[in-house]
Amino acid sequence: MMNTLAIALMTLTITGHQTDTPRGLLVIERASVKPIRSIQVPARQAGPISEIFVEENQLVVEGALLAKLDDAETLIRKLAAEGELNAARAQAEEDVEVATAKAAHGVARAEVDDSIRVNALAPGAIAGTELRRQELTEQRAGAQVKVEEVNFAVAKLTVSIREQQLALVNHELAERQIKAPWAGLIEKVIGEEGAWVQPGDPVVNVVQMDRLRVDAFVKADDVAPYELIGKTAEITISLPNGRKEKVIGKVDYASQVEVSSKDFHIWIEFDNVRVPLPESTKDSAVYFLYRPGMAAKVEIRMDDSQF
């Protein structure tokens, strides 16, 4: 008797979950509204939160600055890095030392050549020791040219190194800024100004609210996932006080993997509706008619007709 009752109850539950009507509708009685995207935006560096720029229920655009960690020390290191880069560029812009060394080498070479010509005209006029001294001076001047050329090349490399060091400091400054990864609504400010955070600690929760989706499960025995993609769906969403509103969407996703109950997952995206607020409400506050967590009923047209 108990087994018979259990089977009967299970049959009623499955029938209430999804029905297929003579009108060519696939009816899913129980579905739920969920956000398409929701994220707890984390800190990427360790340190105290110096400022929070947003409030709950405020809309933000992609890349909006949500909060900032203390960056006083990093700014000082940036100034130092900029100074070192400017100094390196000044050394690398002009090869004055190379030109001077080449000129000195030219003078030394000319002095040796003159002494050789003098001795050719008047042998012994320039003592051998003097000529060897001049030749040594010329060799040293030639070596100094190579030294200055190496120094100039190192100066150019130093500019590149200083540029990378400055880029690293700028990257750290950017990492201390907490920005919105995409446009959405500030659902909750988790962090507090002055509070110390570690990398990965959530600071602000951002939820996409202008567009939501309805999640539902379909019996795999009744329809294949590919048959639902692009089908028109009418979604009836349950609001407070027993009210219901209908929206139209299309099936955007159908899983090809069945769950243990032989159902597969689908979702249908739809546009949300902003609710007008009294003038006394904060200018930054925004509210929407449909919210994640609301119950919904889904009717899908299997014959490609419109609602």
Rank of each mutant, 00 (worst) to 15 (best):
Ala167Thr: 08
Glu258Met: 14
Thr21Leu: 14
Glu84Lys: 11
Ile190Leu: 15
Thr21Arg: 13
Phe264His: 07
Gln91Val: 02
Ala87Ser: 12
Glu149Leu: 00
Gly184Lys: 03
Gly191Leu: 05
Glu56Arg: 14
Met302His: 06
Leu12Trp: 10
Gln306Gly: 00
Ala81Gln: 02
Val204Asp: 08
Arg133Glu: 09
Pro42Phe: 08
Thr11Cys: 13
Glu97Arg: 09
Leu66Lys: 04
Arg140Pro: 01
Pro278Glu: 03
Ala254Met: 06
Leu5Gln: 13
Ala220Cys: 03
Met209Pro: 01
Ala180Gly: 04
Lys231Met: 09
Asp304Leu: 08
Glu82Ser: 10
Ala233Pro: 01
Val203Trp: 02
Leu25Ile: 01
Gln306His: 09
Val33Arg: 06
Leu5Met: 12
Ile229Thr: 03
Leu59Trp: 06
Pro278Ile: 02
Gly230Phe: 11
Glu149Val: 03
Thr236Phe: 00
Pro202His: 02
Ala64Ile: 00
Arg132His: 02
Val251Gln: 01
Ser238Asp: 09
Val54Phe: 10
Val207Gln: 08
Gln198Ile: 06
Val61Lys: 09
Gly230Ile: 07
Leu9Val: 06
Lys231Asp: 04
Gln165Trp: 01
Glu245Gly: 00
Lys244Cys: 09
Ala167Gln: 13
Leu85Val: 07
Glu138Asp: 15
Ser261Gly: 08
Gln306Asn: 12
Asp304Gln: 08
Met294Thr: 07
Ser305Tyr: 11
Asp263Ile: 03
Gln208Thr: 04
Phe288Gln: 02
Glu187Thr: 10
Lys34Ser: 14
Val197Ser: 06
Arg162Phe: 01
Ser261Lys: 07
Leu69Cys: 06
Phe217Glu: 14
Tyr287Asp: 05
Pro199Glu: 01
Gly194Tyr: 10
Ala92Lys: 00
Ala296Ile: 04
Val273Glu: 14
Ile237Arg: 08
Leu66His: 05
Leu131Trp: 00
Ser284Asn: 10
